[in-house]
């Protein structure tokens, strides 16, 4: 359960204003560029200094110990940014096991086995350096790292933005097969992907948050046209 009370956040100008909701099921967050979808996601993980309150399963996130918060919620950014480009894929995925690691010991054999399995699933070599990955591989690696973390709530930020259609389908299947007890939040511009997921739709705009319990309602052309301010036909954008 994620609960937000009067969330406000501003960089130089207000980005999020008085956002409130309480939701236990899976969510798709949609909205035009720059409206604050990723900012909202980062606030949910306490990565930004916001005003208001965020409660995860009834507990204020400011009261979480760092490792407990990591086990409770995580955020998968759309791009991998790393100062150290020589880190190997295996080392990177292993970082997801940090909250479970004994502070004075190495990563366990089970941790290493799990992370190798996750890398096998996305066909990435264990020793490959981060700097040599394609953007699609980076995205898959970020997802693998988040899966090794095994948090209760996972926020995927534009997870298909760098993936080819077959990998997008793989990701779609993985999301569907992921532990049902985990709450999934997907931020995307890929409307077909969003519709196929069938999650509740949160449409974020400058005026606030609109919630569609029935996703099919939102994906009607007239609603899409209204929301995005452009012409949609048969649920797809009309290029003309």
């Amino acid at each position: 359960m994620i609960e937000i009370k009067n969330l406000n956040f501003s960089y130089d100008q207000d980005v999020l204003k008085n956002i409130s909701f309480k939701e236990a099921s899976n969510i798709v967050i949609l909205g035009v560029n720059g409206v604050g979808k990723s900012t909202l996601a980062k606030c949910l993980c306490n990565l930004l200094d916001f005003r208001g309150a965020v409660l995860l399963d009834g507990v204020d996130i400011k009261k979480f110990e760092a490792k407990e918060l990591a086990k409770t919620i995580t955020y998968i950014p759309p791009r991998l940014e790393s100062f150290d480009q020589n880190i190997s894929c295996l080392d990177f995925v292993l970082m997801g096991r940090y909250p479970y690691k004994d502070p004075f010991s190495q990563y366990s054999k089970d941790d290493i086995k799990l992370c190798k399995k996750l890398l096998d699933e996305i066909s990435l070599e264990y020793d490959k350096a981060l700097g040599s990955l394609s953007s699609g591989q980076e995205q898959l690696l970020l997802i693998a790292q988040a899966l090794s973390l095994d948090a209760n709530k996972i926020i995927f930020d534009e997870p298909t933005s760098n993936l080819d259609p077959s990998h997008s389908l793989e990701l779609f299947k993985s999301l569907k097969n992921l532990d049902k007890s985990k709450q999934k939040i997907v931020i995307t511009h890929d409307l077909h992907f969003a519709k196929a997921l069938g999650y509740k739709v949160f449409f974020l705009s400058k005026d606030g948050l609109e919630i569609y319990d029935d996703a099919d309602d939102f994906f009607k052309s007239e609603n899409l046209s209204k929301a995005y301010g452009t012409v949609f036909k048969d649920g797809s954008i009309f290029y003309d």
């Binding site: 306490n46 760092a66 990591a70 995580t74 100062f83 970082m95």
Partner: peptide, 23 residues
């Protein structure tokens, strides 16, 4: 050497380290 795993996480990015439970 004792803090090598934490330093590895920080050498990726601060956001990455925070998301994996590092204060």
């Amino acid at each position: 050497y004792l803090k090598r795993y934490e330093l590895a996480m920080l050498s990726v990015s601060e956001q990455n380290a925070k998301l994996k439970g590092l204060d």
